[in-house]
Write a protein that binds this DNA or RNA. Structure first.
Length: 822
RNA sequence: GCCCGGGUGGUGGAACGGUAUACACGACAGACUUAAAAUCUGUUGCCUGCAAGGGCUUGAGAGUUCGAAUCUCUCCCCGGGCACCA
């Protein structure tokens, strides 16, 4: 028997750790600093995926190492257990979503426990527990009081066959419903929003101080999408209200030759009596409504639009009357829903102007042409295209330059002109792409929004004493057009009993991103039924030291939870400005064929099966070895590689059996004579784990074992301590075999002696004109002169220096010597 | 189109501007075995040479430097995010 029996070992030690409550984390331990390691809590989909292992078992290495270093480490776990799949299972198979969810949680809990991760299960939470969502509702009410939760109209996807609202993912690219196949319509419904846009500036500015990977910060910046520009007003002839536009290029105002309104723009209806082609306009608006967001944007450059005939706008700078169009390339949801079109300096406006033969006027001279003498004359046909003659080849210049055809502003550069034109014709405005967070879901399996409506339809918050506002249990899921909660007799009776006849509860539930926006605070005080998370406890743990999760959550979950936390901070319900000190996005594990794991490809790796074959320690370590964990790469699974890792652990196991028994003193190992090598290993492992570079740490273990055929008991014990976070079961077993009565996981992290880390001898590269011609071995710290002497004595170096003159010698201590020759 | 990452052996990947290809997988050869598996040992970037050695090599091309996978510029390709955002 060459290998070890992982089945017995792993089960035995997991039970033992559980019995000893080894990973239960007290709020405070005297003399220990608190350290919070967080992984995103999983959705209880029903079965553990290899990705879950990657997400939990690898950061566990880090958590364990921190614990051994003497920190009081919180490494909690829970379930993000509200959401659509439970409800789909209910509709499809008639299973109760609650039963489905909690069965999954029970099953997955066992699966997660098989990892041997050091989670503190005593703090476990589940978003769908009334104990939990009570506080989700309570926090909603806090935001509502603060004016950060409001009701507004929003357009939703409506399935006319199933008579239900669909999530965007349930609408196929061709605009039909995934389930019913019906053509999805748009409906405007009253929805609840969180005012995340109020925090746009802080969400953006505070990124600067975070020590996160720039990539993640950039993605958030992009998503927030800050633009500086101006609001400008264009009067409409014979009409009292002007059209207001947002533009980032007020400097091009003199080139605005027409205007475009989004088809949904409210002004259009007010202008009906003046519009001579109203029928055509109406048709266009109808057509726009029937398009899905995807269809509307998929058409890309092929622009459509209709002129509002009979009305004109006035360019405030040139006083010219310019036509007004409506077109769906202008979005109601950004800026003011209207634009001034400057076809000479905007590619979209240019394409539109060409198609509909609208005038193009150049007002910016590109810097390249300055002084070239090529183009100076506005009548030459190259500068400033006369209305009606825009078929002439004319290019778009969207860059900076010098103003022309702009009356008093001629000659100014675009940057100056932006300020001056804004000052004269409008006012500065900062615009964000970020929209308010729509949290209403016309769904069952979520936290009910704690709002009731009086008989007049006015919303009222549900008083705190009625929380949790329970999700009704017996609900009919047959899609009928009525929201599931609207069909609950119990909910109706409950509402009327508490609030009075004619009152009704809100039927929508909250987006699950609300649940996950504060879960990390509940772990700190998971049993508290008086507070969502005691501030005193938050002070002990927040902010989170390391947060590791999927790259797909960068712009949604991470941004939402930052917003939530900031809002709580403003309400004195949180202790810091930012929740996460460090955030890492992990990569993904691909199938053995290099494709994304999918039933379709038959390349799904089942972790349970792998664990049964080679054990949890091998799976953990293989995943840690597959690539750098601090980069969000995509790594293909390799069963051969996994077996290779098992081979390494078997080697560790066999190595141990040669060690001297503390009882008998027998064993084939001599005391380590060098004594320094383990110190180098300690140094490497320590810094690699800290940097989340588990792959190179494991390589270091392998090298060490390859190089050291024998080892002192002390060094061997240090080796096991270092390996303990990676292979917690095997190291525990070997540790106990050495006679120790307490767990290796309670051992202190080995320390290295800086003096012993230094190499005694070093290999120095000898180069001639930058090319390697030999190596010499010298004592560390040998002076330039001595190295030079020895290097020049090398035969091969001599040969290359033959007949050449050394013009320069570059010496890098303990590294290299380079003779530059002529 | 815009914003980020990347491009290194047959494969996953290592390399503070200083000996490129650590570690692992795979492959090949040998030992053990009746045999296979397992294990152990050795070889393994490419070209050339009996050997010592020499030449080439980090997507392509240029530049900076005594010295570049690493820094700069141009281009090509791959991945991720955003996208008619005015």
């Amino acid at each position: 028997m060459q290998g070890y029996n992982h089945k017995t070992i792993e089960k035995q030690w997991q039970q033992e750790w559980d019995k000893q409550k080894l990973y239960q984390t007290p709020d405070q331990v005297k003399g220990k600093k608190n350290y919070y390691v967080l992984v995103e809590f999983p959705y209880p989909s029903g079965n553990l995926h290899i990705g879950h292992w990657y997400a939990f078992a690898v950061p566990d290495i880090f958590a364990r190492k921190k614990r051994m270093e003497g920190y009081n480490v919180l490494f909690p776990i829970g379930f993000d257990s509200f959401g659509l799949p439970a409800e789909n299972a209910a509709i499809k198979h008639g299973i109760n979503p609650k039963k489905w969810t909690y069965d999954n949680i029970a099953w997955m809990t066992d699966q997660i426990k098989s990892m041997g991760a050091s989670f503190d299960w005593s703090r476990r939470i589940a978003a769908s527990d009334p104990d939990y969502y009570k506080w989700t509702q309570w926090l909603f009410l806090k935001l509502y009081e603060k004016g950060l939760a409001y009701r507004g109209k929003a357009i939703v996807n409506w399935d006319p066959v199933d008579k239900t609202v669909l999530a965007n993912e349930q609408v196929l690219p061709d605009g039909t419903a995934e389930r019913s196949g019906a053509k999805v319509e748009k409906r405007e419904l009253e929805q609840w929003f969180f005012k995340i846009t109020d925090y746009a500036e802080r969400l953006l500015a505070d990124l600067d101080d975070l020590k996160w990977p720039e990539q993640i910060k950039d993605q958030q910046r992009n998503w927030i999408g800050r633009s500086e520009g101006a609001l400008l007003k264009f009067p409409i002839s014979n009409f009292q209200f002007p059209i207001e536009v947002f533009t980032t290029r007020p400097d091009t105002l003199f080139g605005a030759t027409y205007m475009v309104l989004a088809p949904e723009h409210p002004l259009i209806a007010n202008l009906e009596s003046q519009i001579s082609n109203w029928k055509e306009v109406e048709q266009y608006i109808e057509k726009t409504k029937s398009k899905t967001e995807l269809q509307r944007t998929a058409l890309e450059k092929d622009k459509t639009g209709v002129e509002l005939k009979g009305v004109k706008a006035i360019n405030p700078a040139t006083k010219e009357k310019i036509p007004i169009w409506i077109a769906d390339y202008v979005l109601m949801s950004y800026g003011t829903g209207a634009i001034m079109a400057v076809p000479a300096h905007d590619e979209r406006d240019f394409a539109f102007a060409k198609k509909f033969k609208l005038p193009i006027r150049k007002v910016i001279k590109p810097p390249q042409l300055t002084g070239s003498g090529l183009v100076t004359d506005a009548t030459s046909g190259i500068w400033g295209v006369v209305p009606g003659q825009n078929e002439l080849e004319a290019d778009v210049w969207v860059g900076e330059g010098t103003l022309v055809n702009s009356s008093d502003f001629d000659g100014l550069n675009t940057v100056e002109a932006r300020n001056e034109i804004t000052a004269k014709f409008g006012k500065p405005k900062i615009q964000y792409k970020l929209r308010d967070w729509l949290i209403s879901r016309q769904r069952y399996w979520g936290a009910p929004i704690p709002i009731v409506y009086d008989p007049q339809g006015q919303p009222h918050p549900i008083p705190e004493k009625h929380l949790p506002w329970l999700l009704p249990e017996e609900v009919d899921f047959t899609p009928t057009g009525e929201p599931p909660l609207g069909k609950s007799k119990e909910l109706k009776a409950r509402t009327e009993k508490i609030f009075g006849k004619g009152w009704r509860s809100e039927y929508d539930t909250m987006d699950t991103f609300v649940d996950s926006s504060w879960y990390f605070l509940r772990y700190l005080d998971s049993q508290n039924d008086k507070e969502f998370s005691l501030l005193e406890k938050q002070k002990l743990w927040m902010p989170i030291d390391r947060y590791s999760g999927g790259a797909e959550h960068t712009t949604m979950h991470v941004l939402y939870s930052r917003f939530f936390y900031k809002a709580l901070f403003d309400l004195d319900l949180a202790t810091h400005k930012e929740p996460y000190v460090q955030r890492f996005n992990r990569g993904i594990i691909l199938g053995e064929d290099g494709r994304k794991m999918s039933k379709r490809w038959g390349n799904v790796v089942d972790p349970d099966k792998q664990v049964a074959e080679v054990g949890a320690d091998s799976v953990r370590m293989y995943l840690a070895f597959i690539g750098p964990y601090n980069e969000a790469g995509a790594y293909p699974w390799s069963t051969k590689g996994l077996i290779g890792m098992r081979r390494f652990l078997d080697k560790v196991f066999r190595f141990s059996s040669f060690s001297p028994s503390p009882l008998t003193g027998e064993g084939g190992r001599r005391p380590d004579e060098g004594g320094s090598s383990i110190h180098k290993l300690i140094k490497r492992i320590t810094s690699d784990i800290e940097a989340f570079k588990f792959n190179t740490a494991i390589a270091a273990f392998m090298e060490f074992l390859n190089e050291n055929k024998q080892m002192s008991k002390e060094n061997w014990e240090d080796f096991l301590r270092l390996l303990a976070p990676f292979a917690p079961h095997l190291t525990e077993e070997l540790w106990r075999q050495l006679g120790h009565k307490t767990s290796i996981h309670k051992e202190p992290w080995p320390k290295f002696d800086p003096k012993l880390v230094k190499e005694e001898t070093v290999t120095i590269a000898v180069q001639v004109s930058g090319k390697l011609r030999g190596t010499i071995i010298v004592d560390a710290g040998t002076s330039e002169d001595k190295v030079k002497q020895k290097a020049l004595a090398e035969a091969n170096v001599k040969r290359h220096l033959e007949g050449k003159k050394i013009t320069k010698v570059i010496f890098v201590k303990d590294k290299l010597i380079n003779f530059v020759v002529k």
